[in-house]
Design a protein around this nucleic acid. Structure first.
Lengths: 161, 161
DNA sequence: TATTGTTATACTCTATAACTATA
DNA sequence: TATAGTTATAGAGTATAACAATA
């Protein structure tokens, strides 16, 4: 895994960090995708959509799902269609707006998701078991700063538009 | 960006960390992909391949590129073909093994890559400018542990095969 | 006019497996 | 037999843009 042997720069710290972060994420993500496919015959975006719904028993509107999953609307329609076909999620009318509806897990979808989530958590715990609890916390905090800074930049950009 | 509002667990620290890491990586990666497309009409895998070559003036064999980019061989062939067509990389015979050759940057490819790399670095520096130098270092170190642990697991698995 | 969601389309990236040529 | 690389294929994942219905 020598992806990191990539950049050249006079200010290489951030670059080195980014390449390592990318490598780590890809390692874990690849593992998760493979396991989801092998054990549950599903994909990461499908799992992600169900995970979003799991936290919102009342369901989420398509545009909210789109925002949270960071993909455009057409894709959410496609993934939702698949999950509806399999009886794992359902579309429910929103009263007061006949254009929109909420997508929510069915009982069966929730049951299946719970099983998947338990396995998923085990994979993730294994991926980070090289770190102590304090290190996990520290990493979480540092990444929080990265995220926060990104959001600050995005907000600033919006204001000038 | 509420991707993190996803997991549920009795052992949620690792899961929270993973979701945040995935979010951060996607934020930066999306930005990089967009900029590469808009400013240089190229893609991340193409940039990545050229970046691998930039560090090896003598070139790299296909299987080495495949390993470093963490993708299977057929894909490397495809990306290489594109770059050859555009005159950015070239295939050079390996003496002593007529099955193999090395792929290396052409003069033009190197020149273009240098331009792209300078821009790329600026995007990355911006993405992490919310962190101090010490925090960047700390993050890099922690991710190093994650990577190391993954490699240790992979090695252990190999030995039992 | 703007918004919600769908449809249609096209493209990149990917893995798998069968294949050719050489070792 | 094994290895280096290619080809063919199928599928995931994505963005874009045109569209219908409703606000």
């Amino acid at each position: 895994m020598d992806m990191e042997a990539r950049g050249h720069s006079e200010h290489p710290e951030a670059l080195r960090l980014w390449l390592r972060m990318l490598t780590c994420t890809q390692l874990v993500e690849k593992q998760v995708r493979t396991q989801l496919r092998e054990q549950f015959d599903t994909t990461l975006p499908r799992f992600d959509l169900m995970a979003q719904l799991e936290r919102s028993p009342e369901g989420l509107k398509m545009n909210e799902l789109s925002r949270r999953m960071m993909v455009t609307g057409g894709n959410v329609t496609g993934i939702t269609d698949q999950l509806v076909t399999e009886g794992l999620v359902e579309r429910v009318d929103v009263e007061g707006d006949r254009r929109a509806y909420r997508v929510r897990l069915t009982t069966r979808g929730r049951k299946l998701f719970d099983e998947m989530a338990a396995e998923h958590e085990a994979w993730i715990v294994a991926a980070f078991e090289g770190l102590s609890a304090r290190e996990v916390e520290s990493l979480h905090k540092l990444l929080g700063k990265v995220k926060q800074h990104h959001n600050a930049l995005a907000d600033a950009k919006l204001e000038t538009t």
